[in-house]
């Protein structure tokens, strides 16, 4: 059995994954398991909350679009997806992967799909952080008259 913590991690990763990257990695696995919908993909919204002053009490900031679905593999595992945006195809793939990750193919998928997805997303994030770092100001003090 996989722990709740690990499931939280892969579900979060799948939700944030760029749709195209996820789709190409999924296709590369060659998997296409049979399943039945428990809840077919549905588009809705989540109200995003912030904190007053960044650290204080919550307030409602505004909504974001979300797509969700639930399905059950013929082998029995139930997969859920809650992903940002309006992409039913991506939600379907994410829910299938969530279900497969709980079964015997989980270990294999972790290496062929989850780890690669994580690496690609980390690389993109690092590249942005590197560009930000290049715009960090280095202060220097001008020599003033009284120092001479």
């Amino acid at each position: 059995m996989t722990s709740e913590l690990a499931r939280r991690d892969w579900m979060s990763l799948l939700a944030k994954a760029p749709a195209q990257t996820l789709q190409s990695l999924w296709q590369a696995t060659g998997l296409d398991p049979e399943f039945s919908w428990l809840r077919s993909p549905e588009i809705g919204a989540t109200m995003v909350r912030g904190r007053m002053g960044g650290t204080g009490a919550p307030f409602n900031l505004g909504e974001m679009t979300v797509t969700r679905c639930s399905l059950q593999l013929t082998s029995g595992e139930v997969g859920h997806a809650y992903i940002q945006g309006r992409d039913k195809a991506k939600a379907r793939i994410a829910a299938i992967i969530d279900a497969l990750m709980q079964g015997p193919q989980g270990e294999n998928l972790r290496a062929t799909l989850i780890a690669r997805l994580e690496a690609e997303m980390l690389a993109a994030k690092s590249k942005r952080a590197a560009k930000a770092a290049a715009t960090k100001v280095d202060f220097f003090t001008m020599v003033r008259g009284e120092d001479q």
Binding site: A45, M47, R49, R51, G54, N60, V66, Y82, A132
Partner: peptide
């Protein structure tokens, strides 16, 4: 458009202290 969307829920408050800052 947003009035047509079912509400799935409320998020936890976003933690801006953990922001990946561009600026």
């Amino acid at each position: 458009y947003r009035t047509t969307l079912p509400r799935f829920g409320y998020s936890s408050p976003v933690e801006t202290a953990n922001m990946a800052c561009d600026r």
